[in-house]
Nucleic acid binder design. Structure first.
Lengths: 347, 347
DNA sequence: CTGAAAGCGCTAACAC
DNA sequence: GTGTTAGCGCTTTCAG
């Protein structure tokens, strides 16, 4: 009639087994496991010992079912090993670990229109308590995501792609990074600065373009034609081949380091010296940037700071549904001057 | 007394709501949702329509609780944006998506001894159905993981760090990559090949070292002293400074591209020409490898193929507990010859 | 092919 | 401080 004490060997121990061994009620075990107060030290100790002895581990599915919360956060991220997105994802993972939440990751594919919607949907399906969107591209068709996203959302390095009830953002700083680069080159004495832009479907690429443009305008400089790249060193190389046709180029701001590296390669191949003839700046500060020839001047992206700040605020929103959103804290810009920039050549 | 038909607006619809609307039993809804057979087409259609109308989504927590399976796979990965680990993680994510499982990611920190054990434990805690270990380092203290890992495990690019019941591996090919590189250099006519090794706590680093060593031995060549690096371009640069002291170096195999790039930088700075005086080969084929100066000869790592093959076999092990393990399929070695290698200089 | 009943292991609300 | 009683929304028997 009554359940026998020992269960099958293949079965995991449950809180009620712990309770039995510790001589308390099952609810008390639950209290101890959740670190609630109002449990005497003695009871707490006994429960912990019993749990240890049995090798008990809490069943998250049961908890989620009973409580309606999964204590997990979902991330939507672009499936690419590009330095920026990959670094940001690492930052998110590091930051999530500190929060005590588990992490669900869903990748999107570049060029897949319904990607973001589908990814968010699958996370909602999994019952995550919050969502991080690290999706640097805006495809069509995100608009109908308005519905049903009733968990807090953190959008990284992009404006919110849809209307949800509780959205926070972090990492909208590309504009400033671009300004720092452009001003560095103008300060060196260059009359103007060319720009090798990233693919314009990426927010970061548009932001950098606008930051560059605004800075030139603010200094009353003419704006040369924009070069178009796709983040790859190969596209930087192609842009460099174009650029050597023009005789008036003395400074180029490439929207990321890889393109800068490809660009420099093309310049060197065609006999231009860097930085004596042309200064080149990248953006990211990838690990090899200091060791290419010439060592690359660039701006560091604050991935970890962005992820940490964003996650702190996301968790706050999850755990305090009615509290005011915490304002973002933009990290300082970190320009790294190396040997790919110099004053313009004398005419 | 009886539960009212409409529930609160904030409450998600349940399968029983769908059943009611479709005029069938709740169990039938469950059958349809799981794609089971023995459901008439008419009933199936009606259920699907009702689900659609209600915006029904299956509750994974409830399913997991009732079935004992979560349909999720956990990944333990080293928290780094290094090209290798990051690319492999992307490959895993892509591959998992095709399987219909959700992905839990847990990062470990380099230097954290209990890292792997803790990470596996937290995944087991979450009730994952299978585990992927993409942990390129072996720290101490992994040995006591033997216990309780009763789900299938896929170990990537490393030998299994512990004894579990059902373990499969994939991506143990560093040895071959190293051989291909070393033979390429010997074929060019170099008398021997120096090696700039990665940190020896990494399996991949040890494998490459051994592959290089075995190849030299097989060709009866003397083995020069090993240079030690840490994967970074900075360490490659330092190794390069050392290397220029020795006069007999004509060929170097760096265990990854970043170190090769740093090494080349040091050689160029001290007046050596690459490849005329010294040939350098990397390993990875990072995206910029073709655009550094000189363009880098390297070996591509088959991350996607490894991840896909591994995951297919992991899922097989999950879903067929008693089946024989499927053998691994090693992808072909892909040597990319560019301009950083040439025959040795005449003496 | 379909349905009824009985839990899965936990938390929530309330008693004591 | 602690225990009792109900479910959470599914899947799993087992009947038809």
């Amino acid at each position: 009639m009554a359940r026998l004490v020992g269960r099958g060997a293949g079965t995991a121990p449950r809180s009620i087994d712990v309770a039995q061994l510790a001589g308390v009620s099952q609810k008390t075990v639950s209290r101890v496991m959740n670190g609630e107060q109002y449990v005497s030290d003695d009871v707490r100790r006994r429960v912990l010992e019993a749990a240890e002895a049995l090798g008990y581990r809490l069943n998250h599915a049961a908890r989620a079912l009973a409580s309606g919360r999964t204590r997990s956060i979902g991330v939507v991220t672009l499936g690419t090993a590009l330095y920026g997105p990959a670094s940001l994802l690492m930052g998110v993972e590091r930051a999530v670990r500190d929060t005590g939440y588990a992490l669900h990751v869903v990748n999107t594919v570049e060029g897949d229109a319904a990607g973001l919607a589908g990814a968010v949907d699958s996370l909602l399906d999994q019952g995550v308590d919050g969502i991080v969107i690290s999706e640097p591209i805006d495809e069509q068709g995100g608009a109908d995501l308005t519905l049903r996203v009733d968990v807090p959302v953190l959008v990284l390095s992009a404006p919110p792609p849809f209307a949800a009830r509780r959205v926070v953002t972090a990492g909208l700083v590309s504009h400033q990074l671009a300004r720092a680069v452009t001003e560095h080159l103008l300060d060196l004495g260059h009359e103007t600065v060319h720009h090798l832009a990233g693919p314009q479907r990426w927010f970061a690429a548009r932001d950098r373009l606008e930051g560059w443009r605004a800075t030139l305008a603010a200094h009353g400089r003419r704006e040369p034609p924009v070069l178009a790249g796709d983040w790859s060193a190969a596209s930087g190389y192609r842009a460099g081949r174009e650029l050597v046709e023009a005789d008036d180029v003395t400074a180029v701001f490439a929207a990321n380091d890889d393109m800068a590296i490809g660009l420099i390669r093309a310049l060197l191949e065609s006999g231009r010296r860097v930085p004596e003839d042309v200064s080149v700046v990248g953006l990211d500060d990838v690990p090899v940037a200091a060791y290419v020839t010439p060592p690359l001047t660039t701006v560091r992206q604050p991935f970890d700071a962005t992820a940490q700040d964003g996650l702190k605020r996301l968790v706050h929103a999850i755990e305090n549904p009615d509290a005011d959103p915490v304002p973002a804290q933009d990290p300082p810009v970190d320009l790294v001057v190396r040997e790919s920039t110099a004053p313009p050549p004398n005419r």
